[in-house]
Design a protein around this nucleic acid. Structure first.
Length: 727
DNA sequence: GGTCTGCAGCTTTTT
DNA sequence: GCTGCAGACC
């Protein structure tokens, strides 16, 4: 323990030692926040003899939770397993699985992701005859989500909004949505928090149990909590008041999904005699990077006010490059990365950060043949169609009341149960207030169904029932295998001639692999737990820092991470900050905080790039230089990379090609010969994995291949450039 | 009941 | 420029 204190500064030690009473730790970026938190836990257990099981530590992502657990384990050993270190959502699921029956749900409730939510909302809209053209599902989901973040129930929403035609309609959808969801025994993401608060409010025994259990509560990233989460923490810590929150108001970047910056700004009002500790010493970045971060964030008015300082040297200046076009921007980044690699840096030290996922495409295209990269975000594995299909089978088997999952797969693969049939079953179910599954059991008495439909429905029903029967004594991976075989799903894909269906088969195999991994790593191997795990993981959670590849991700995903070298791309008004920021000051402030988060990710070197012209909506859009660039003092920015140097020939997009070629030439061993490739050849690409050649085009000087990759879709590649091998 | 086609909307950000 | 969806057609 003494060893630990040696490595901490005065404020950090104070934060570690203040165990009793409310504490607010304002931890600037890179101020050793995680070290403080883990040391604090170790101190509580080792020095203060606090039971690990009476500590609840909440983090923002599963990854952060896992990391914290690992670090605590390293200090205090296996005892750490008896603490709860988890995300809000996981902690709530755990509480709800135990006691949700007390508020009228079944403990095997399903968790709906945003996709399921959207489908259900649309169903509700249809039922209420709300035309998509009057109010979009997006708007409704947004408004309902906003209400839920603030713990406003459907009833209350209806009561307070009945005056306005539009919001009244939304209130009706909200009411119906909640009713249906309850009938399906399902909870959406927001419900996980809300129902836990609900349970605590309605059931004193349960609340008391957890109050007594969790004598010490810690919340990381407190600036990103919404009102519901605030309430939850508040309920838990009301009595003992041993609550320690850690956060940085300057890093609040989730206001758009309900994060309430006032939770952190008002902490001292909410908890009398709260101790406030500021950690302002930064151990991550060089001086110039910090100076830039500080000067940007100073333009915000609504903040607690603190300034990061460091004892590190100034380091290099920031490098700014304004490219002619978005493509040139990507080329510049690629050529710089290759240069850095030649200088001895490793790809794993580098991250490219951008505002929107759409921006990743150009970087990917540019990196394809020369730079290994890993992409975080975008369309996620578990959101792919075939994966969602199989998961819907699993969800239905786990919880037959889940109408949304049932509807998704009742005719997938095709089994002659069309929309009309489903419509009739739905009407019957609505009338008798049955779930669809229960309505199917009565299929013989549903009016208006043809004999053929009844036969098909019965066949489907016995298929599902056979799965329900075997689910208890089968491993999840085996259950998945049974589903894809017995349902005919796999057959259907195998018979298909479409290339993308072959990729689908691979993805399903990948799903089986993931289930096996789950079985190997999880203690609780139930289907329920598996479904829970995959619904609650984010992409960042799986991010592997050891791989030698450049990381591509959004600024949001980068929060909590650090890299020796960072590129912030798209530094243009209209992109970052986005157009909306110019009409709303609060948006501008949030963007600025995001910028601050981005800058402070960098340890040694920071590049800022932008483009004059960018393709958006298939149009050429022209953007001015980002206001955030102007907020950084000029003397911190290196001007060596001006356009004059970068752009020798107008309209010739080869500016950075030489660097590229020299790099590629060094890596041309094992290249495929033209004579080796035929249509239908199976090849392996360094990054894209396995694929099949579908066309060969020699009309332009070089040989162009169209290749269907099993997991990456169809790509156009140039034979001489692409790292391909025959398999 | 299944398949094809044209068009609208999309780009914030995610547990 | 791409995707997903509604409506028309088979």
């Amino acid at each position: 323990m003494e060893n630990i204190f040696k490595r901490l500064n005065k404020e950090q030690i104070e934060a570690v030692k203040t165990v009793e009473g409310p504490v607010l730790i304002l931890a600037g970026a890179g101020s050793g926040k995680t070290t403080v938190l883990t040391s604090r836990i170790a101190y509580m257990i080792r020095e203060k003899n606090i039971y690990p099981s009476s500590i609840l530590a909440i983090t923002f992502t599963n990854k952060a939770a896992g990391e914290m657990k690992e670090r605590v384990k390293r200090i205090i050993g296996e005892e750490a397993d008896r603490m709860w270190i988890s995300t809000f959502h996981s902690a709530c699921v755990r509480i709800l699985r135990r006691d949700i029956d007390k508020i009228g749900y079944n403990s095997n409730f399903a968790i709906y992701d945003s996709d399921d939510q959207r489908v259900l909302i649309r169903d509700c809209m249809k039922e209420l005859s709300i035309n998509d053209k009057d109010i979009t599902d997006r708007e409704i989901i947004g408004k309902i989500g906003e209400a839920k973040d603030r713990l406003i129930s459907a009833d209350e929403f209806k009561r307070t909004n009945s005056g306005n035609f539009r919001t009244n309609k939304i209130a009706d959808v909200y009411l119906l949505y909640e009713k249906k969801k309850k009938g399906f025994n399902a909870l959406d993401f927001d419900d996980l928090i809300i129902k836990t608060v609900d349970l605590f409010n309605k059931n004193k025994e349960v609340l008391d149990f957890y109050r007594r259990k969790f004598k010490y509560v810690m919340v990381d990233e407190y600036q990103d909590t919404n009102h519901a989460q605030y309430k939850l923490v508040n309920l838990l810590s009301q009595e003992h008041k041993n609550i320690c929150v850690v956060g940085d108001d300057d890093q609040c970047i989730y206001e758009w999904r309900g994060a309430d910056i006032n939770n952190i700004l008002d902490f001292e009002k909410d908890y009398k005699n709260a101790k406030v500790i500021k950690l302002e010493e930064n151990y991550r970045s060089y001086g110039n990077i910090l100076k830039a971060a500080n000067s940007v964030i100073q333009h915000n008015t609504n903040r607690k006010g603190k300034a990061l300082r460091t004892e590190a040297e100034d380091g290099e200046k920031l490098r700014y490059f304004r490219a002619e076009s978005d493509k040139d921007e990507a080329r510049f980044v690629a050529s710089e990365i290759l240069r850095l690699k030649d200088e001895g840096k490793s790809f794993g030290d580098i991250a490219v950060l951008y505002r929107t996922n759409a921006q990743s495409r150009l970087f990917e295209e540019c990196f394809i043949n020369s730079i290994p990269y890993k992409l975080i975000g975008g369309t996620r594995f578990y959101e792919r169609r075939e994966i969602k299909d199989i998961l819907s089978y699993l969800k239905l088997i786990n919880n037959p009341l889940d109408d949304i999952s049932l509807k998704r797969i009742i005719n997938v693969p095709k089994r002659n149960i069309g929309d009309t049939t489903v419509q009739k079953i739905q009407e019957y179910a609505n009338e008798l207030e049955l779930s669809l599954y229960n309505a199917l059991l009565d299929v013989d008495s549903i009016p208006g169904l043809s004999g053929r439909s009844v036969t098909s429905v019965n066949k489907f029903l016995s298929l599902i029932n056979s799965f329900i029967k075997i689910k208890e004594d089968m491993k999840v991976s085996d259950l998945i295998k049974s589903i894809i075989n017995d349902s005919g799903y796999l057959d259907c894909l195998q018979k298909s001639t479409l290339v993308e269906d072959r990729a689908r088969i691979e993805n399903i195999e990948e799903l089986v692999t993931s289930a096996v991994q789950f079985e190997e790593s999880s203690e609780d191997q139930s289907l329920e737990k598996y479904l829970e795990d995959i619904t609650l993981v984010a992409d960042v959670d799986k991010y592997d820092e050891d791989a030698d590849a450049v990381t591509l991700m959004t600024l949001h995903s980068a929060k909590g991470l650090e890299f020796p070298i960072v590129f912030m791309a798209g530094m243009e008004n209209g992109v970052f900050p986005g157009n909306k920021s110019f009409s709303m000051e609060s948006e501008m402030e949030e963007s600025r905080r995001l910028c601050y988060v981005g800058i402070t990710r960098a340890k040694e070197r920071l590049y800022l790039t932008g483009a004059e012209m960018r393709m958006q909506y298939g149009r050429h859009e022209f953007h001015s230089e980002s206001d955030f660039i102007l907020e950084i003092p000029k003397d911190l920015i290196e001007q060596a990379l001006q356009r004059k140097i970068a752009k020798p020939v107008i309209n010739k997009r080869v500016t950075f090609e030489p660097d590229f070629k020299s790099y590629l030439n060094k890596n041309t061993e094992n290249r495929l010969e033209e004579s080796q490739v035929k249509i239908g050849s199976k090849v392996k690409h360094k990054l894209f994995g396995k694929g099949t050649v579908i066309t060969i085009d020699k009309s332009t000087g070089s040989t162009k291949l169209k290749i269907a990759f099993e997991n990456m879709g169809i790509k156009d590649l140039i034979l001489d450039m692409a790292p391909l091998e025959l398999i």
